[in-house]
């Protein structure tokens, strides 16, 4: 059992949904990311998705694109990101961390080398948004050998065959993309979530985490009632981006995660009482 699976099992026992914030490594700087990782853990995150900045992020909207550009301008290279991860693990960051990484970064470093270094840096899993089932067999095997969970994504457009295959092959959880579109905060929660989760649930017993377009505490609360995990990215990145300095960025991120934590836990608590 991986640390990611353990976390979902424990939360299930507690009747809680996992809260999984996303931040871009090196946005605005790597030292800020280091401080943010601890702040997210202390404010109630159950695991963290750490985005590796990429020049051409096809699955991302303007907020994450911009964060990536800033990180790259400020020198967030992959060796430096691995080194930062090793440091935060030495300093005691204990919750699971997954890399959200575009496949070219993995391919260019060499799949084995990238995965070796990720594992040695204390990474627990990988989400590769442009590596669909058809292309992932090799990475999947190499990741498993190193104890890394390769998390597959499913979308509202996924066919029953693809859902079944992701259910067999995904490790840790399944990343359910809430809408047909790119990442980014939306005013309203996608109506596609509930029917999609129902279809995926029928095919697999893996934990299901929902991401894309979740920005407000009430969105997080609504998703927590339906899924095992709630992923919040762009809305958090926006708060970090808008802060006047890095200390304030950490404070605002922490306050935002606390508000989401509360909403997620209360949603389950209320529905348990009502139900």
């Amino acid at each position: 059992m991986s640390r990611i699976s353990d976390t979902f099992t424990r939360l299930k026992g507690e009747g809680r949904a996992a809260l999984m914030p996303y931040i871009t490594a090196g946005h605005p700087t790597l030292p800020a990311t280091e401080a943010l990782l601890f702040a997210l853990e202390e404010s109630g995150a159950d695991m963290i998705e750490l985005g590796i900045p990429y020049s051409d992020p096809l699955a991302d909207g303007p907020t994450v694109q911009r964060a990536g550009q800033i990180a790259l301008q400020n020198g967030a290279t992959i060796p430096r990101i691995h080194a930062m991860m090793r440091r935060v693990r030495e300093q005691g960051l204990s919750i699971p961390v997954l890399y959200m990484v575009y496949y070219n970064c993995v391919f260019r470093h060499g799949e084995e080398r990238f995965l070796d270094e990720a594992a040695a840096s204390g990474i627990d899993g990988l989400i590769i948004p442009d590596l669909p089932l058809e292309e992932a067999e090799e990475v999947e095997g190499l990741a498993a050998e190193r104890g890394l969970d390769l998390v597959y994504l499913l979308a509202p457009t996924s066919t029953p065959e693809r859902i079944a295959e992701a259910g067999r092959r995904s490790r840790g959880f399944i990343y359910c993309v809430s809408l047909t579109g790119v990442t980014g905060a939306r005013d309203r929660l996608s109506a596609a979530i509930e029917p999609m989760l129902r279809r995926i649930r029928e095919a697999t017993s893996l934990p299901l985490a929902v991401g894309f377009g979740i920005s407000r505490p009430e969105h997080a609360a609504a998703v927590a009632k339906l899924a095992d995990g709630v992923i919040v990215g762009s809305a958090l990145v926006e708060r970090i981006d808008e802060a006047p300095d890095e200390t304030e960025a950490v404070n605002r991120a922490a306050a935002y995660i606390r508000s989401l934590r509360l909403a997620v836990d209360q949603a389950r608590f209320r529905s348990a009482n009502v139900g």
Partner: peptide
């Protein structure tokens, strides 16, 4: 599913379908 499609999708080692899951059914 994976095999049949990967072969037609490649010219030697080049080509493939490295896109988000949302697009796979459309392709």
């Amino acid at each position: 599913m994976a095999k049949a499609q990967t072969q037609a999708a490649y010219f030697g080692e080049f080509g493939g379908q490295f896109v988000p899951e949302v697009l796979m059914p459309a392709l």
